[in-house]
């Protein structure tokens, strides 16, 4: 929409700038906080301009470690988070692609029952079934490892639904042409269906990566070994320094670092992400 009314232009810009400021200000404060030393941070008022300690804090976070006993390196926590987010995103996509494929293209007995069973899991997120799930994971000996961190989070009704919708928009003729060309079901899945839903997979990957990265409650429950801590829960642990005041400068630095991978994923996959959510032509 193009309108040539100066007042409207001025107004919409004000709203947009205010919106950006609301979103950006906390991030700016985080950055500023990460660039001061331990003495400046607890003082009032909060600093609004960056200090000169940024690289010293960066080194402290990565090399010397953070937390009570300075034994946790941010690097290891980020690596754990990365593995967890990738496994959750990859696992969810793989499983929901296959289950949507089964539901849309195969006429097996009790198909609708399975469909509704998947649907019902929407109402049972991990938070609701946290005790029984913990019991199962503990019995399977998956505490304190990546499997325990990810497997219970992988089953996903939302992604299955999304792929079901995507597959329903793929014209039947494509399947028929592939059948005449001599493709079996798995061939069709690999050669036609996957490439055709490429952008949707990318869009979902972005969403699921961030979902995985931001997991807090489940890792908190399942990991007791410090080497398996993820960064989001790591930040929380740092706040609970028992005797001393929290080391705000290091906490802010860790927070800043924790924001980087999701941002990279979003920027890197921006084009595919938008295409996947808006493109309808198959």
């Amino acid at each position: 929409m193009i309108e040539k009314r100066p007042l409207a232009t001025w107004f919409s810009h004000t709203v947009l700038i205010l919106g950006v400021a609301v979103v950006a200000f906390p991030i700016w404060i985080t950055f500023v906080g990460a660039s001061h030393d331990a003495i400046r941070m607890p003082q009032v008022p909060l600093p609004l301009l960056p200090g000169d300690q940024f690289f010293i804090n960066l080194k402290a976070a990565f090399v010397e470690g953070v937390g009570n006993a300075k034994e946790q390196s941010v690097g290891i926590m980020m690596f754990n988070s990365l593995i967890m987010a990738l496994m959750i995103a990859g696992g969810k996509i793989a499983i929901s692609l296959l289950s949507a494929f089964a539901i849309v293209y195969f006429r097996f007995p009790f198909r609708m029952i399975f469909f509704w069973m998947i649907f019902i899991t929407l109402m049972l997120p991990v938070e609701v079934r946290i005790l029984p799930t913990f019991e199962v994971v503990a019995n399977l000996g998956m505490l304190n490892n990546y499997w325990g961190l990810t497997v219970p989070l992988i089953a996903s009704a939302t992604a299955t639904f999304m792929f079901r919708q995507v597959f329903l928009t793929v014209p039947d003729e494509l399947l028929e042409a592939a059948r005449i060309d001599g493709a079996g079901p798995m061939r069709f899945f690999k050669d036609i269906l996957l490439p055709v839903s490429r952008t949707n997979i990318a869009a979902l990957f972005v969403i699921l990566f961030i979902y995985g990265w931001n997991q807090y409650l489940w890792p908190l429950l399942i990991t007791t070994d410090k080497s398996m801590y993820t960064i989001v829960m790591g930040i929380k642990q740092m706040l609970e320094a028992a005797e001393e005041a929290p080391e705000w400068h290091l906490i802010m630095m860790t927070t800043l670092l924790a924001m980087i991978p999701p941002v990279l994923v979003v920027i890197g996959m921006q084009k595919l992400f938008i295409k996947g959510l808006t493109e309808t032509e198959k």
Binding site: A177, I180, I192, V196
Partner: peptide, 27 residues
């Protein structure tokens, strides 16, 4: 269908959208 030794042209052509013309024909 694949064992009947037939080929079919569809009303909406049903070309594979992600493949080049060459790959469409070669598939």
């Amino acid at each position: 269908p694949k064992d009947r030794d037939i080929a079919m042209v569809f009303q909406n052509y049903a070309l594979y959208p992600h493949m080049t013309v060459f790959k469409n024909m070669a598939y």
